[in-house]
Amino acid sequence: MIKILILIILFFAAVEDIKKMEVGYIYPASILALSFVNFFLKPYISLKFYLFNSFLVFAVLFLFWLLGGIGGGDVKVLTALSFYAGFRIWDILLFSSMIFLLYSLMLRKFKTKLPFMPAIFVGTIGGLFANF
């Protein structure tokens, strides 16, 4: 159930990113709140691991933000999503990056800014629901 709510939140974040090229604070805050609900529902989850993993995700994405390769809203949403997804956030990042690369190749827009949140939405579907 929480997965579906997170996907709905990501869908609306993607729509806002397409329209405005920015993502509101409500989206990462909502994902973070759902992640903490998940911690209470599943007490066997290691909070220390999730905190370390989220810090690592933030550090990597912050470097990309400093270089101008990703927006601040994308960093916030992906960091919040890492509290829910745990180690699968790296799968989500990989899927999202591949999807972004594909649609930037199809649109042939390399110098212009494109919204990354739609790729995050589709990448999350692949990362959370894929069974390897």
Score class of each variant (00 low, 15 high):
Ser35Lys: 03
Phe64Glu: 08
Pro115Glu: 11
Lys19Gln: 04
Pro28Met: 06
Gly86Arg: 10
Val37Leu: 15
Leu67Gly: 10
Phe49Arg: 06
Gly127His: 03
Ser104Ile: 08
Phe39Ile: 03
Ser104Thr: 11
Leu105Val: 09
Gly69Pro: 02
Leu56Val: 11
Leu34Tyr: 00
Leu41Trp: 12
Ile2Gly: 00
Ala80Lys: 06
Met21Tyr: 14
Ile120Lys: 00
Met117Thr: 10
Val60Lys: 03
Ile8Pro: 09
Ile4His: 06
Val122Arg: 01
Val77His: 06
Ser82Trp: 01
Leu128Ala: 04
Ala14Asn: 05
Val122Tyr: 05
Ile99Val: 13
Gly126Ile: 04
Phe83Pro: 00
Ala13Pro: 00
Val57Asn: 02
Lys3Asn: 11
Phe62His: 07
Phe129Val: 09
Trp90Val: 01
Lys109Asn: 14
Leu107Ile: 10
Ala80Ile: 02
Phe110Val: 07
Leu47Val: 15
Phe58Met: 06
Ile45Val: 13
Phe100Cys: 08
Met106Tyr: 11
Ile4Lys: 12
Phe87Leu: 14
Asn131Gln: 13
Asp91Gly: 07
Phe12Val: 07
Lys109Gln: 14
Ile120Cys: 05
Asn53Met: 08
Trp90Tyr: 14
Leu34Cys: 08
Ile70Tyr: 08
Gly127Glu: 06
Leu81Val: 03
Ile89Lys: 07
Leu101Asp: 00
Ser104Val: 04
Leu5Lys: 07
Ile9Thr: 12
Lys76Leu: 08
Leu93Ile: 12
Leu128Val: 13
Leu93His: 05
Ala85Gly: 05
Gly123Pro: 01
Gly73Phe: 09
Ala85Val: 04
Ser82Cys: 02
Leu56Ile: 13
Gly24Glu: 05
Leu10Met: 04
Leu41Phe: 08
Ile26Glu: 13
Gly73Pro: 05
Leu66His: 11
Ser97Met: 10
Gly123Val: 01
Ala13Thr: 01
Glu22Lys: 14
Phe110Tyr: 15
Ile45Cys: 08
Ile2Met: 04
Tyr25Glu: 13
Gly69Tyr: 09
Pro28Ile: 04
Leu7Val: 05
Ser96Ala: 14
Thr79Cys: 13
Ala130Thr: 09
Tyr50Pro: 07
Gly123Glu: 00
Leu5Tyr: 11
Ser30Glu: 02
Ile2Tyr: 02
Phe12Ile: 09
Tyr25His: 12
Gly73Glu: 01
Leu105Ser: 04
Tyr50Ser: 10
Glu16Arg: 08
Tyr44Thr: 15
Phe95Ala: 05
Ile18Pro: 11
Gly123Lys: 02
Gly71Gln: 11
Ile8Leu: 15
Arg108Lys: 11
Tyr27Gly: 04
Val75Gln: 05
Leu128Cys: 06
Tyr50Leu: 12
